[in-house]
Design a protein around this nucleic acid. Sequence first.
DNA 1: CGAGCGATTCGC
DNA 2: CGAATCGCTCGG
Length: 203
Amino acid sequence: MPDISVLPQRFYLEGDVVQIAQKLLGKIIVTDIDGQLTMSRIVETEAYDGRVDKACHAYPQRRTPRTEVMFKEGGRSYVYLCYGIHYLFNIVTHAENEPNAVLLRAVEPVAGLDYMADRRKVKNQINFTNGPGKLASALGITLNFNDLILYDSGSPIWIAEEKENSYKPDIIQTTRIGVDYADEDALLPWRFYIKDNPYVSRK
DNA sequence: CGAGCGATTCGC
DNA sequence: CGAATCGCTCGG
């Protein structure tokens, strides 16, 4: 079990969302849902910038009931239902009225693997969390956990960093997945993942 | 109000 | 490769 501490809110307010998406790689997501504690290492992310990015639900400054949380101050969760079936988990970044978010696309299980196995009902451990819908399912994330403070270790979901770990992973930068509807913005290289990590989606 | 569609996954 | 499945968004 790694020695961890909560990632402070300022982490989500400094730099642009593309940098924050990279810096989230290697961080730990902790969930304590239905009495089931899990910990996982973030290994794949995508950045969405509501100011300039057609792929972002909040572009162009599109304020609706669903996107409202992205207009709040950084450090909150944005969870939504995708294809009527899967929940996708995002981290909101930046100041009020700057609607940016980072999608978690894959994580590596660290603790609570029995719970993940129960929730996912698949045998192969690789398939617990190697996709955005899969990881939400494995960690117990549903719409109930939208608009949650992530810089409070008392929350049912929070983000941590390891206290003593200077390891810097090799990061691959490439285009995002499933955003063809965004025309030329689908070409933005705003997907990041840890090189050679077995839990990265769509190898 | 209702048509159209999606930041995916799984099974055939 | 196509179905599943439903809330959100926008146009009428």
